[in-house]
Design a protein around this nucleic acid. Structure first.
Length: 419
DNA sequence: TCTGGGGTCCTAGGACCC
DNA sequence: TCTGGGGTCCTAGGACCC
């Protein structure tokens, strides 16, 4: 019988910061979203201070929950690299590993010798020794059960970071006592609608007639029901599926009000997006641009709009920045204080494979883009850019507490002195 | 003054075709 | 007065995830 595992890094972003600053051990640590806007990762100690997931940081400050809290601006290059290291360790402990998110990976634990509990504990120890990242592991006959097991392992200290839900009786005992909202894929809306029909626990969900579940939660609900009964519907996939879309979007440090500033900003997003595209050797055939004002402001008129265009497959910076600016022109309205904007690329396909009989990019364009990418990689992002991207970005995000990129920048590597 | 930035999948409905 | 029945493709929007 197949056994699926799920390993999850505890307070991942915070743990990454701790990995390089041992003084943070046992202190409350919080990592903030872009713009230092809200709390997106908290250690146990920070949670105990009442700091909530997604809580606006300026409110936390006002409420003086800050005593002794160590807080950081998010440092994604560091976290992505740490995630890769965790993955490398896991490959030595499971025949197949499927990265699910930056801090979670599904594992194939089928047919491993010895007791699974011992195996999983050894795996956790190895990850922590090598990367300094603490984890929890849950496992069972399906992915949805493994996910639930992981939640239990994390939520209940007495489980000591491990939870085995392979046994049906053990599962049912938990099902009777856990709310259906803890199921992977049941969010706030669905939980509320299930609640309306009297379904509150996982046991009630699993035992409800599939036709009833189908009415409320469509095919997803029916599939989850089967998964929770132990019938596997979701397979493990080692090869990452080809991504379907790619976006560069930001909230601004301060509002953008002039067309020229917005045009520069959008150009910058289109540039970043086309770099990402080329890094993954993809072309896009569908470009969207959106702009919006601050929806949290009650006293300002709200405006949001988006425009998109189907184009010949390309990853060319000059083509994509030009299209993006053209799209912006169609949705721009004067007189608003814009708080957020973005460029999204869809209809992705491996570079050069889409039908493109009429508008084939020349080899020179490809060589130019390669040269730009290698210069920017060597001397830093933005060294070379189209003139339209502007010289200085007025909306540069706040990042007041950014830690060094310990593992991905030579200049920021940790220095060790021997006495 | 200050509220993230990515993604995924599914469904309904419209346009269009024969 | 009467106005089919099936497809496909695309898009927008909703819901969810981390």
């Amino acid at each position: 019988m197949t056994v699926y595992g799920l390993i999850d890094c505890n307070s991942f972003y915070c743990s990454c910061q701790r990995a390089f600053e041992p003084r943070l051990k046992r202190l409350p640590v919080v990592v903030l979203s872009n713009n230092d806007g809200c709390a997106i990762a908290r250690t146990k100690e920070a949670k105990n201070l009442g700091i909530k997931m997604g809580e606006p940081w300026h409110l936390v400050r006002e409420q003086r929950k800050l005593a002794g809290v160590q807080w950081y601006s998010s440092n994604y290059p560091l976290y992505a690299d740490m995630s890769r290291r965790v993955y490398q360790v896991l490959l030595e402990h499971a025949p197949r590993v499927e990265p699910y998110s930056i801090d979670e990976m599904f594992l194939d634990l089928t047919g491993l010798p010895g007791a699974l509990t011992d195996h999983c504990e050894a795996m956790r120890v190895a990850v922590e020794q090598t990367t300094k990242i603490p984890t929890c592991v849950g496992w069972g006959p399906t992915k949805a059960i493994a996910k639930l097991a992981n939640y239990i392992a994390k939520d209940r200290p007495e489980m000591e970071g491990l939870c085995d839900l392979t046994d049906e009786h053990v599962r049912n005992r938990f099902y009777r006592n856990l709310p259906v909202s803890e199921v992977w894929g049941i969010g706030r809306r669905l939980a509320a609608r299930l609640d309306d029909t009297g379904i509150r626990t996982i046991a009630q969900f699993v035992n409800a007639p599939p036709a009833h579940i189908r009415k409320i939660a469509a095919i997803i609900g029916v599939r989850l029901q089967a998964e929770l009964r132990g019938e596997s519907c979701l397979q493990l996939s080692e090869v990452a599926a080809q991504r379907q879309g790619l976006a560069c979007t930001r909230s601004f440090g301060r509002p953008v009000t002039s067309y020229s500033d917005m045009s520069e900003t959008i150009t910058g997003f289109a540039m970043r997006a086309s770099e990402k595209l080329r890094a993954e050797k993809l072309d896009t055939a569908h470009v969207s641009v959106f702009i919006q004002t601050n929806r949290h402001k009650r006293d300002e008129e709200w405006y949001a709009n988006q425009a998109s265009l189907t184009c010949a497959p390309t990853s060319d910076t000059l083509a994509l920045t030009a299209i993006s600016r053209r799209l912006l022109r169609t949705i721009w309205k004067d007189g608003f204080r814009y708080a957020k904007a973005g460029v999204m690329l869809n209809d992705l396909a491996p570079a050069g494979t889409q039908n493109n009989l009429f508008d084939r990019p020349s080899e020179q364009d490809g060589a130019l883009m390669e040269a730009i990418d290698s210069i920017n990689h060597r001397f830093g992002r933005g060294t070379l850019k189209p003139l339209s991207a502007g010289i200085e970005r007025s909306w540069k995000p706040r990042q007041n507490m950014l830690s060094p990129q310990f593992t991905t920048k030579w200049q920021e590597m940790m220095e060790v002195q021997t006495l």
